[in-house]
Simulated assay, not measured.
Amino acid sequence: MSLLRSSIVSALLLCSTSTMALSETPNVVASIKPVHSLVATIMQGVGSPQLILEGASSPHTASFKPSQAGMLEQADIVFWVGEDLEPFLEKPIETIGSKAHAIALGEVQGVTHLAPREGGAFEAHDHDHDGHADHDDHAAHDHGDHDHGHDHEEHAHEGHDHDHEGHDHDSHAGHEHGHGEVDPHVWLDPENARAMARVITEELVEHDPDNKAAYEANLAALNARLDSETAEIRDMLAPVKDKGFIVFHDAYQYFEKRFGLAAAGSITVSPEVIPGAERVSAIKAKIGELGATCVFAEPQFEPKLIAVVTEGTNARTGTLDPLGAALPAGPDQYFGLMNDLATSLKDCLAGES
């Protein structure tokens, strides 16, 4: 009988220990699929983050839903890009998610920032913009010459220090910027993704030190994959680097800078606002003037505009999705997104689509 009691006690203690270990794993929420993918990669084998914005919804125009409130209420950590990209999350994070530690990954140390482009083929921003209706109208200054001197190659992986000991979490907001002065699509530079992943790892280790070894091993694997994927994409795009193209809205300059491409212009600044006839005529003229090879649509927004601006030109059409919305959420999503962007650009610019 005593042996039976001993077995029962041992089983209960084991169950209790397992429950404690499970409860110590932080409840993590991520805003958009690329951020979720980076977090899911670091958490592999430990836990799974929740995703707020699923499907093809754009963070520029999304509304916060009651069904999403539970995620923020129960969150220990919230990873998002920031208010310029996801204005719909700003107030809910401050109120519903006030108990969570919210990290705006677009503002962390190590992330390279570019100012929004405007002028010429890049439509001028509305400098009187008030509120958060759309991120691209937030620019508050004339940035003049848009060669910002950002040589992304100086951020190459060589020499990256991945020792996280002694990290000061107050440095997470190390880059102070006025609202709207930064293009928020920072994840499209893999070196920015590397910096974001480092901070994600440090934050998880701080909340869950028992799994430090797993988090840091996952970070090392992610960095190695970023190295190989970056090299593959650079080789893929090398033959089409001199081809001009027009994008639906100017979301890709981080990707362009990293891989030596250059969009000739954008159709609209505000993805949710249809450009007027004058703007459409200007883009058509620009396509002809530059001999732009391709004009790229986005799945989240009105595709008819692409047909309008390319009518009567020799430009081919393609689709770019900066969110990878059609890809399944998870650790592979970020790499699938980057590969899809590169493939779409290569195929259209090389005349293979």
Rank of each mutant, 00 (worst) to 15 (best):
D227H: 03
L14D: 03
S353W: 05
L12I: 14
V81L: 13
G47M: 03
G351M: 06
V309R: 07
H138V: 10
A124Y: 01
D183F: 04
D163W: 06
A213S: 06
A104N: 08
T17L: 15
P34E: 11
G47L: 01
T19L: 15
I287E: 05
S353T: 13
K65S: 05
L219S: 04
H143C: 05
Q333F: 07
A104P: 03
T319W: 14
H177R: 15
D134I: 09
E94M: 12
V46E: 00
L188C: 00
K33R: 08
M338K: 10
L341F: 10
A133I: 11
C15K: 08
D332K: 09
H172L: 12
I283V: 14
S10Q: 14
A329L: 03
E107C: 07
N27F: 04
S67R: 09
A262T: 13
V46M: 01
H177T: 13
F255E: 07
H146F: 00
P87C: 10
A224W: 04
L323Q: 13
D134Y: 05
L105E: 13
Q50N: 07
I8D: 01
R279E: 09
G265F: 08
A69T: 10
E191N: 02
D189Y: 00
G55S: 04
Y254T: 02
A62T: 03
S63T: 11
L89W: 12
G351V: 06
L14H: 03
F245M: 12
F88T: 09
T317L: 02
L13C: 10
E94I: 02
S23C: 09
T319Q: 10
A100R: 05
S6N: 12
E176I: 13
A224L: 12
C15I: 15
I77E: 07
D147E: 13
V29Y: 04
G110D: 07
I246A: 06
Q109V: 13
K99N: 15
M43E: 02
E107Y: 09
L219T: 02
D210F: 09
D242Q: 13
V269C: 03
E176G: 14
H150I: 11
F79S: 07
